[in-house]
Computed example of a mutant assay.
Amino acid sequence: MSHKMRTITIKDVAELANVSKSTVSQYLNKRYDYMGEATKQRIKEAIEELGYQPNIVARSLKQKSSTTIGVIVANILHEFSTQIIRAIEDQCHELDFHIIVCNADDNPYKEKNYIDMLRAKQVDGLIVFPTSDNVELYQELLRQGMPIVFIDRLVSNVDVNTIMLANEDASKFAVDEFVKKQHERIGIVTTSTVNNVSPRVERVNGYLKALETHGIPVRSEYIISAELDKVQDELDQMMKLKDPPKAILAGNDLTLIEILKYVKEHNISIPDDLSLIGVDDVSFAEIYNPSITTVAQPTFRMGKQAAEVLINQIKNGGDEERQVFRFGPKLIPRQSS
């Protein structure tokens, strides 16, 4: 009788390998502690010969775990986001977890839909780059015991483990570098701070504190916080001031790209006419001409920590006190500053 005629089961594998069903189950779950190499080899060969496919859905129902986590990013176009996702995936792969990635576009309604979908798929936990408008939903998830880790953003009144950059330090390092190059007319460009997105607010605060430390007066016209499609217009107004800034800190990779487009279009020479530093070490920073000074986030360490913290919560119930894990940035000096 052909094996193709019916579903191959653990029992079939056990019979062919001449072991018990529980031994096959231990093999499938990678519990090899008391298993000899010859037994492992026999089971492996039996699985290959029979073409056995483990039923992941059935196993997850039996184990009451899907070994799957949901990752909801605010904007997948951010290089920061893609690097974090990669680190999460690496760590989850090591620990035999799978990930489902969703892109919320900083839209609370879209984020809620994805959370509902992931709950329906019975994911074991969530890693979220949160919007600030779903506080009640997050609180409901916590009441239901859903393990959650936030990345990049603090949300008030939601007590979860959060992975963050020391954002004020990122701005401080950039301002220090500009001052070292004799700059006093220093501007900052971030995406909109209307929704109090913590990294943007903290980077502006860090910039203000750093200017104060160096005794440089704050000029409000040197501070831009705008939606991405408005950045170039705002930049145009700032650069047409009687005494425009001679140095600009780009608050993230997407604003850096908008500044570079503007600079190219208006034949502004970097660093002769304008010094530039970007937060986020973009992949093109070294090959752009001139190469771009950046303040790098340790994205791989941050993503790894997020996955470790979440999976620890999933496995151990996560009764420990919630923490904010802050990671230090690093200035990478190149030619643009």
Results as ranks from 00 to 15, higher is better:
D272G: 03
I287D: 13
G251N: 02
N252H: 04
H214R: 10
H214Y: 15
P217F: 05
N195K: 05
V201F: 02
S220V: 12
L276Y: 14
H266D: 06
N196R: 14
L260R: 08
V231A: 00
L274K: 06
I248R: 00
S269H: 10
P244Q: 03
R219Y: 08
P245H: 00
S220H: 11
L241P: 02
G278F: 12
K264R: 14
V279C: 13
S198I: 03
Y222F: 15
E227H: 02
S275F: 09
L254I: 11
I248E: 08
V201G: 03
I277C: 11
I223L: 03
L276I: 14
P244G: 09
D273C: 10
N267C: 06
I287E: 14
D236L: 08
Y222H: 10
P244I: 06
I287T: 15
D281Q: 13
V279I: 15
K209E: 07
K240M: 12
Q232M: 12
K246Y: 00
Q237D: 09
E227C: 01
G278H: 09
F284Q: 09
D233H: 13
R203I: 01
N252V: 02
I277A: 10
L241H: 04
Y262P: 09
P217D: 15
H214Q: 08
G278V: 10
K230W: 02
V194T: 11
G215W: 08
E258L: 03
V197H: 13
S283K: 14
